[in-house]
Design a protein around this nucleic acid. Structure first.
Length: 662
RNA sequence: GCCGAUGUAGCUCAGGGGCAGAGCAGGCGAUUUGUAAUCGUCAGGUCGGGGGUUCAAUUCCCUCCAUCGGCACCA
């Protein structure tokens, strides 16, 4: 028997006999590692523990508490889910069941069109636990196409996958069916699944999982194909890791903007108005006003002109722009007037801004011409799509359109991108990456040359930001490609925020022109851009980012003053008056209740600064400061000092508690 | 739009074929408080809407609406 050398991740080498596996390697390294081992990476590729190792390979043992380890155990848990379902619903067809972030899912079609209900999850879960107890091995088998089709002849989704790869129709599945080899895993004589693997050695290695919910999902993600029953679950390497994940889900729920919007009295969705139509209460209205005022000031400084346009328009405008052709389904149906004229609620502001450009003849001297508007638009979102403030039917965009020459566009885009990122940072977001969305396969107008030029320009501009750039092929608008700024929030979720779109098409459709130095008409190009995207959605993202603890400059109520007894109320009002003269949003709550109760209420309302004033403060012109997120209150701070601290914090958009990490 | 779940007071929730419940919030009164809940009292409801079964429906059935979790969609 010949001996082979294996390289470990730290560069050291080990000798194994030919034909030995990663499990043998793990045993050689240590009993504990062998016990932990789930799978291996061989030359960077995940494989089963039992697979014989090739000579000279770099091998790492994959253990549960690692990203690849979790992926393997989640994927294996998905198989156990499928087996449990086939036991409980004989004749069930299973489609695909991958590992996903934090868990896994599996899609099924049940006999007789049966559907899972929430109660079924419990039954399925206990069946899964039985399978885990049975300690079933995962055994890999490989077949030719024809054998594979025979083995899975009673599973139509598997047959479709195998024959799709064989016929070259669905190359995306090629990894499950590599080359001409179909791979499958058996757990028991009764359950097998088409799968590229790898898997844990046995079901006994699983167990820290929980089924989360059932959902409908279209086969192949295609609305026109059958809807399957999807079960989502989460799975982890240990009881503790599972518990930590469930706790984290609860924490995320606590910062849900819909919940905080209710608790902090910011906004609501009166059922009288209809789905996706929000109203902002005074506190939410203040946050919104501060956001908008700050944005306006920055846009003025950046050379934008402010325009206003109506909410409805004749159909013709959106026929010319092309929106009606592509997006009629997403628009509110037209109002028909007596003379047969149709009017639409606007879903976009751009054509209006084009008309402003066209209102008179333009000279090259005016370019770049930057038109800004907080434009409220209405989109008929499908009923299942509306979601809090993040997906609504009436929204306000911080929308602007820049008209410039082709020569200007590159520099204009570069300075625009800087402007965008600076503004987002001022709102406390600072972890970004960029996405470049290119020409859609079908929904697109314009020539290949124009698209190429636009995409090349945007790619060059994106490169100047020094940020990670991700490609989103085919994700552009029908009239042009876009750069979008993606931001990670405080709990690591990413949100698509600002978009910058380059558009050669609308100026043509509207026959827009300016007079150039050569005294001839030239076509401007247009840049569409929104920084918040939608004011409503941006506010929702900020609320969740800060868990409702908005930085002082944005807080609806910045300071609340509490007298210890009602004999201190006069002083409390005097303190409030001084702060009000500084432009601070301050409220006094009179001493009708014990101090502790009033403090508690102010804390629950997430007021950044609670000032408590008593005898000492009246005498010494001081205040007691109980700052949001701070551990201990400060006593006896001179009012003049507090005013200065507060004004500094507000003007620098500071968030001391975020800095403290609370 | 599709699949599943949920809808009881302003909010959070209990109840389950036979008189509608709690805590918080709210009104009134008392209490005068130094850093996260003072006490008392009062009021508050077509049990999401409509239809059906029943002697009787908030409860069971159907349907519509809304919300939640997904899928699809997202200019």
């Amino acid at each position: 028997m010949s001996v082979i050398e294996i390289i470990l991740p730290d560069g050291s080498t080990r000798s194994l006999e030919e034909g030995q596996s990663a499990l043998d390697l793990a045993e050689q390294i240590g009993a504990r590692l062998a016990k932990d081992a789930l799978a291996a990476t061989v030359n960077g590729e995940l494989t089963d523990l039992s697979k014989p190792l090739p000579a000279g390979a770099t091998v790492a043992i994959v253990t549960p508490a690692s990203a690849p380890g979790r992926e393997v155990l989640r994927h294996s848990t998905a198989h156990v889910l499928a087996q449990a379902v086939t036991r409980l619903w004989p004749g069930a067809h299973y489609a695909i069941g991958p590992a996903i972030t934090d868990g896994f899912y599996y899609d099924f079609s049940l006999p007789g069109g049966a559907r899972f209900s929430d109660d079924d999850l419990e039954r399925i879960e206990s069946e899964m636990r039985a399978i885990v107890t049975e300690n079933q091995p995962f055994v890999r088998e490989e077949y030719s196409y024809e054998e594979g089709l025979k083995v899975f002849s009673d599973q139509p989704f598997k047959v479709e996958i195998i024959s799709g790869v064989r016929d070259g129709a669905s190359p995306e599945d090629a990894s499950e069916v590599s080359g001409s080899v179909v791979s499958a895993y058996y757990n028991s004589p009764t359950f097998k699944d088409l799968c590229r693997g790898p898997h844990v050695p046995s079901t006994a290695r699983l167990g820290h999982f929980k089924l989360m919910r059932v959902a409908g999902a279209y086969w192949r993600g295609d609305e026109k194909r059958p809807q399957l029953q999807r079960i989502y679950g989460t799975a982890w390497e240990s009881k503790e890791a599972l518990a930590a994940h469930l706790t984290q889900l609860e924490e995320a729920e606590k910062r849900d903007h819909r919940r905080l919007g209710q608790e902090l009295d910011l906004f609501s969705f009166p059922t009288e108005l209809g789905p996706g139509l929000s109203v902002f209460h005074p506190r939410g209205g203040t946050i919104r006003r501060v956001m908008e005022e700050y944005s306006r000031a920055r846009h003025v400084a950046a050379g934008y002109e402010f325009v206003n346009t109506p909410h409805i328009t004749k159909a013709e405008l959106f026929e010319t722009s092309g929106h009606l052709h592509w997006y009629a389904d997403g628009m509110y149906p037209p109002m028909e007037l007596d003379d047969g004229q149709q009017y639409y609620l606007k879903p976009m502001n751009c054509p209006f801004h084009v008309l402003i450009f066209k209102a008179r003849q333009r000279s090259y001297r005016e370019l770049p011409l930057r038109m800004f508007e907080f434009g409220t638009v209405y989109r008929y979102e499908k009923s299942g799509a509306v979601h809090g403030l993040t997906r609504v039917r009436g929204l306000t965009q911080d929308d602007a359109h820049i008209f410039c020459t082709r020569e200007q566009m590159h520099d204009e885009l570069v300075s625009l991108l800087t402007f965008v990122l600076d503004l987002l940072r001022d709102f406390g977001l600072n972890d970004f990456y960029l996405e470049l969305s290119t020409r859609p396969a079908e929904k697109a107008v314009g020539s290949d040359e124009e698209w190429r030029e636009a995409e090349t320009t945007l790619a060059a501009v994106a490169g100047t930001a020094g940020l990670e750039l991700v490609m989103d092929h085919g994700g552009g608008a029908f009239y042009g490609p876009k750069i979008s700024v993606q931001a990670r929030d405080a709990i690591g979720r990413t949100h698509q925020l600002s978009t910058i779109q380059l558009d050669f098409q609308l100026p043509q459709r509207f026959e827009t022109s300016y007079i150039a130095p050569d005294n001839a008409r030239h076509r401007p190009i247009m840049i569409h851009r929104a920084l918040f995207g939608s004011v409503e959605r941006f506010m929702a993202i900020l609320i969740e980012h800060y868990a409702g603890n908005l930085p002082t400059w944005m807080s609806p109520e910045q300071v609340r003053v509490l007298g210890v007894r009602d004999s201190h109320d006069d002083y409390a009002y005097a303190v409030a008056g001084a702060l009000k003269s500084d432009g601070v949003r301050v409220v006094v709550e009179a001493a009708n209740e014990p101090l502790g109760a009033r403090i508690r209420r102010a804390k629950l309302e997430k007021v950044p600064y609670i000032l408590v004033v008593g005898d000492d403060d009246v005498t010494n012109a001081t205040v007691g400061i109980n700052a949001r997120g701070a551990n201990d209150p400060e006593r006896g701070v001179l009012l003049t000092d507090f005013r200065q601290r507060l004004l500094d914090e507000i003007s620098t958009h500071g968030s001391p508690e975020l800095a403290r990490g609370t």
